[in-house]
Computed example of a mutant assay.
Amino acid sequence: MLAILRTVREDLQAARGQDPAARSNAENALVYSGLHAIWSHRVAHRMWAVPALRGPARVLAQLTRFLTGIEIHPGATIGRRFFIDHGMGVVIGETAEIGDDVMLYHGVTLGGRSLLKEKRHPTLGNRVTVGAGAKILGPVVVGDDSAIGANAVVTHDVPADSIATGIPATVRSRRQHEPLVDPTTFIDPAMYI
């Protein structure tokens, strides 16, 4: 029981740490669909470990999908302090593995590219952030401390401390220093209206 309470507290702390709009643990516990999906998944994942409970685990996952808009297969392995911000449309496949302190935004897919019964979904390391609408497909590995940009499509491994952006995603070192751009040099889109 203490382990469950510790996990709930950690998940609530992750929500407060990752979302500047988070106001209180009580409010977050009531209204954050990402937290509801994670907590339901933690129960379904334990059920999935018992072969006789795999059917009910899938039913629980589908009920959670109906209520939250977040689909997490009960077979997916998820680490501590996982947070889904604005979760609608998130899909996490059966063989996905997610490390600790990972954050996903809405519309993220951790999907497969094969119908074979093998490891077919991504593995995300610790402290990975995945932007809105990103698709990470296949048994790729995203290394620790990496970021996947919004709407990126990742089909190859991403080394640790990297940033992957674009379609298909290109990868660069997170530590790479780029010259700063003066924002006053940008063209104002309003001039075309």
Rank of each mutant, 00 (worst) to 15 (best):
L2N: 15
R6H: 14
A15L: 15
G17A: 10
A21F: 12
A21S: 13
N28K: 11
A29E: 11
H36S: 05
A37H: 05
I38S: 10
W39P: 07
R42N: 09
V43W: 08
V43T: 09
M47I: 09
W48Y: 13
P51V: 14
R54W: 10
A57T: 05
A57R: 01
R58C: 01
V59T: 07
A61S: 11
A61I: 02
T64Y: 00
R65W: 04
R65C: 02
T68L: 00
I70Q: 03
F82C: 05
D85L: 12
V91R: 04
T95H: 06
T95I: 02
T95N: 03
A96H: 08
D101C: 09
Y105Q: 05
H106D: 01
S114I: 08
L124S: 07
G125S: 03
A134L: 00
I136W: 15
V140Y: 13
V142N: 13
D145I: 01
A147C: 02
I148G: 03
A150N: 02
N151E: 01
V153I: 11
P159V: 01
A160Q: 05
T165N: 06
G166T: 13
S173N: 05
E178L: 12
D182E: 12
T184W: 07
F186P: 04
F186T: 10
I187K: 11
D188T: 02
Y192V: 07
